[in-house]
Design a protein around this nucleic acid. Sequence first.
DNA 1: CTGAAAGCGCTAACAA
DNA 2: TTGTTAGCGCTTTCAG
Lengths: 334, 334
Amino acid sequence: MSKRLTLSDIARRAEVSPRTVSNVVNGYVPVSDKLRERVEKAVNDLGYSPNFMARSLRSGRTGLIALVVPEIDVPYFAELARMVTELAEPLGYRIMIDQTSGVDASERSHIARATQSTLFDGIIFSPLQLSPTELAEVAGTTPFVLLGEHSQEQSFDHVGLDNVAAAGDVVAHLYATGRRRIAAIGQNVNRPASTEVQRFDGYLRGLERHGLAFDPTLVAPSTSRHRQLGYDATLEILDKGRPDAIFCFSDLVAIGALRALASRGVRVPEEVAVVGWDDIQEASFSNPTLSTIAPDKNLLAATALSFLVDRIADPAIPPREFVVPHRLEIRQSS
Amino acid sequence: MSKRLTLSDIARRAEVSPRTVSNVVNGYVPVSDKLRERVEKAVNDLGYSPNFMARSLRSGRTGLIALVVPEIDVPYFAELARMVTELAEPLGYRIMIDQTSGVDASERSHIARATQSTLFDGIIFSPLQLSPTELAEVAGTTPFVLLGEHSQEQSFDHVGLDNVAAAGDVVAHLYATGRRRIAAIGQNVNRPASTEVQRFDGYLRGLERHGLAFDPTLVAPSTSRHRQLGYDATLEILDKGRPDAIFCFSDLVAIGALRALASRGVRVPEEVAVVGWDDIQEASFSNPTLSTIAPDKNLLAATALSFLVDRIADPAIPPREFVVPHRLEIRQSS
DNA sequence: CTGAAAGCGCTAACAA
DNA sequence: TTGTTAGCGCTTTCAG
């Protein structure tokens, strides 16, 4: 390959100034048709494309938004990524997905790097471990919005669900369909402000509202959001409690639960009902199909993006909070 | 936030030249301990982080590798992305995931942009529509490797499977377990060099090898790799053929097939066996669990990355080809 | 081992 | 409407 072409190569070829080439390429200022044509011809003839770095260094913007998620092979994040990417395109932004692997230190360093580097115009961050307070400590100057995690202190833009209410909806549904021993998988005692704690809170309040006693043998904590956790936890609960329903705080965990129940020959929903959370695509195709809390993921993505775009335009606006509606999608498993 | 700090701010503060700060930050040249300390102190005190654009513009490298995939919410790609990301970190590269949405025009423009922009040091590209020939037409100068797709002409680095052999393995397995009416879902007649066509070829050869007649009522084409396709195609085949096995060219399609069979009350594997392809995590947790062709995805990712790193170092080396081993993972569905 | 100075390719004041 | 020119912040010859 020969040397990279520059703006001035084009300018020379088209016999205009670099300024004019820049204007044509960016479509900024009205350029006379004659010159525009000459420039466009030169660009095509020579096969010129602008240098991203130089342009960004000079203009101070990149057109890039980072989506920082724990694990892209968790379908919930993958689906979100898909939506955000598609919504960003018409806004003139490209989405780059950045995986933290959900480990505390790694999440911290990823967000630090992303907010300090000048690579991104903005960031959409879905934290797993980091609390808003910890986040504030490491964050640089790049604007970002928080996804999912409930920010106690309203210091950042934030889009999430009403986790407590949604969990209550699940309990109400299970109660209404005759379930009295409702297990819950996914509590996370280590992170006070986490969505998991909120969901567990909603579960407890739901039990109370329906006069059901809390039974610790029906509860398993969350060490991950993966299928295997649901599988293991379900076997455990099956042995020590005697659930007639299992409420999982994520669909992936619920899928693991379905597998565990099948392996034990327990019929779903006849003997045990299962409800998940997230409404990932997989939930519509499992056997049996999975009842789940379905957040409006598209609205989630769109709102996060719109908050971010606004903040990029004016970093000084006060932080906003938006609670995305959800519905309980009832399928075969309950 | 105040103005961004620059190298020379640090230099002034530490009372050294910009050159020395650069050396310290990059750890290039041996710097005296005394100066290093002064510089590091200044960096920490002021909270300096280098400007990515300026650095990349000057040095000509970014440390960024793009992973260009059709749809990140297809688990196969998500799992691959996870692996590539983790393998790249120790090599000093960050992976940015770029989704094309698998549409022809979009795939073309994404790869054109990615290879022409100076943003990435290299690209790993998993094409869905683009043939190597078409690819050659739009590609810029950024080095890239191809994933999955079989490149007819050996003009690019390429890592893939032996699709024909693997498909043959599936047919052999089904035949050995007594299946005689083996359906296949996922053929793609529109793209001669696609993996789908290779798999179908392997299927045909497998039938022949075992003396089974080809029956067009047992075949459904691939318009996508999604679950819904598997669902629809299975119902269709169930109606017109009378399969005792369904071979799906992707796990996602197989998951859809399982759902369709369950909805019709067809028992798997007693009445109909199902085999998929990819060994995504979901395949270990479906009901029943799914038999599948399991490529060594980690080796796939590692080889692609290593090919790419070599090519970045020396763009002139001849293109290489690597065929990743696979195994047939037999689970409950067959 | 460190300093001075040039320049990566582009955009945007400022002029004309 | 177009040309001239000065940097964006960094790395890197070239001297010292």
